[in-house]
Design a binder for these strands. Structure first.
Lengths: 295, 295
DNA sequence: TAGACTCGAGTGT
DNA sequence: CACACTCGAGTCT
């Protein structure tokens, strides 16, 4: 690749790491208010004498219920596993209803509620980070198509996330799992006019498979690369098992450290990977888009 | 194995899942107060007019600094990556010092601080969950040795965590990484009177290698089993590459789902795994301890 | 609907 | 210090 002349070209710069963590902090700050309404509602109710006398009053009010779950350190995941009855019981034995009118106790419950929300916010952010990376990549592809005056259509799911980009006789789909591979692939380029689930099971329709890792944390970089590499190996094996040639394989990462950069570069050189790019490197992304659209 | 007559015997019961999430909630609640001192200190300082006029006043006071980082949605990990200077700058541009004396603004900052702490608490909990599983397993081995009146010694690190159990001419060590395998192994049984780092590089001294997954979340079960399986495969390959026979391989998991149970059982049946146990199943643990100590 | 994804929160070497 | 561990917080298929 022109934009990757050596392993070093792939390595994420300190500035990009800093920018990534900065964005995360900003985005978290923006989302921080989402949880306040529930807490405020609790204060409102707790301030009116007799409104919260026992578990029943909490279970009957969705916002109070969510507040109480958080105050009891129960995540949505935990609450789902425990079931409504067990949650009710835990709330009953954890919240001291005799003290609900006390300002100090209210503050304590509030703090516990926000602690739980913080973990939830962290979880949402991890998804958002992955999503943002996917958007960045799909936007690049669309941009590339627009620049080349190639007509294309974008499909989005309910949440506005791009699930599919269509052009000419090509469909790029995200997060699909061909059964014959048995692994979820971050993006797949299909040789087809439109997407159908069944296409995923026709090996020769898969022109390319790619893994995208959007995390910026250097501590996770190597681990995520290993996972990606294993996933791509799995693709290659699935094709080999059927006596077919492997499709073009891609890797895009936001956090690329020195040691993994060497491995990626080696795979680029020996043709195992058709293209690789650092998500923060425009030139590399552009070249990847070019290779992808020329398949 | 006597205690594992079918795949179903390995599957984690709903009760164990519930108990696991309950424990997590209780443990989180116990740790919830750790963060209050810093917040209280902020209130104390913010309450005294003129004590917090700008960034300098915050950076100079460690507790205020930690509070401010949290209020700016910066985790310890992020703060480390950004560096002190950038953090200082972010604090300066995020905190509105003109409003620090306002009760409402103080409450808003407090909420943000606790959100960040919640994510931190979640991270600590994940480590604690893994630690607890390791304790449970090592306690079990010690118990088994005691029951058999086998003299043994336990070594602990600074934090009280068991790092090593010694008996007869055997040493069981936790979380070590033999360079010739290149992977961290959760527990390794060595044929030796005492532990030395160099022993890890002598393949025939490794009598057994085991992976332990302590998480209770069903959603993570399969993923963690895959990681464990890959790690054990890596061990087998490292021995095979040297023309040596693989040591006995073990798997212990707290969350075992139907589909992975079938895979584990198949590996038990064909001898790939020497033993496997559900961490919550005493009989299976006992048998695993027996197999381990009889090697 | 169960299962497998997103990724970084802390911790240890 | 760089890296590789712990695992579950949401989310999508």
């Amino acid at each position: 690749m022109e934009a990757v002349k050596s392993a070093k070209d792939l390595v994420t710069t300190r500035d990009d790491v800093v920018a990534g963590f900065r964005w995360q902090a900003e985005e978290k700050a923006l989302r921080a208010n989402e949880f306040s309404a529930v807490a405020d509602h609790f204060y409102y109710k707790a301030g009116k004498v007799g409104e919260i006398k026992g578990v029943d009053d909490i279970v009957a009010d969705d916002r109070l219920y969510r507040f109480a779950l958080g105050a009891c350190a129960l995540s949505a995941k935990a609450a789902q596993q425990l079931g409504r009855e067990t949650c009710r019981e835990i709330i009953g034995s954890t919240i001291n209803f005799a003290r609900v009118a006390e300002i100090e106790y209210q503050a304590e419950l509030e703090r516990r509620y926000f602690l739980t929300c913080g973990d939830a916010l962290g979880g949402s952010m991890r998804n958002a980070i992955g999503q943002r990376a996917q958007n960045k990549l799909s936007d690049y592809v669309c941009q590339y198509l627009s620049d080349g005056q190639i007509n294309h259509h974008v499909e989005r799911n309910g949440g506005g996330k791009i699930t599919e980009v269509r052009w000419a006789h090509r469909v790029l789909v995200f997060d699909r799992k061909p059964k014959f591979i048995g692994k979820n692939i971050d993006f797949i380029l299909l040789d087809a006019g439109e997407y159908k689930t069944s296409l995923l099971e026709v090996p020769h329709k898969l022109l390319a498979c790619g893994e995208l890792k959007g995390g910026i944390d250097p501590a996770g970089a190597d681990e995520h690369w290993k996972t990606a590499r294993a996933a791509l190996d799995r693709v290659r094996d699935a094709f080999k098992d059927r006596g077919l040639q492997s499709p073009a394989l891609f890797f895009v990462g936001a956090a690329i450290e020195q040691s993994m950069a060497a491995e990626i570069f080696a795979q680029l050189t020996n043709g195992t990977l058709a293209a690789a790019a650092n998500l923060h490197h425009q030139g590399q992304l552009a070249e990847l888009a070019k290779i992808l659209t020329n398949l």
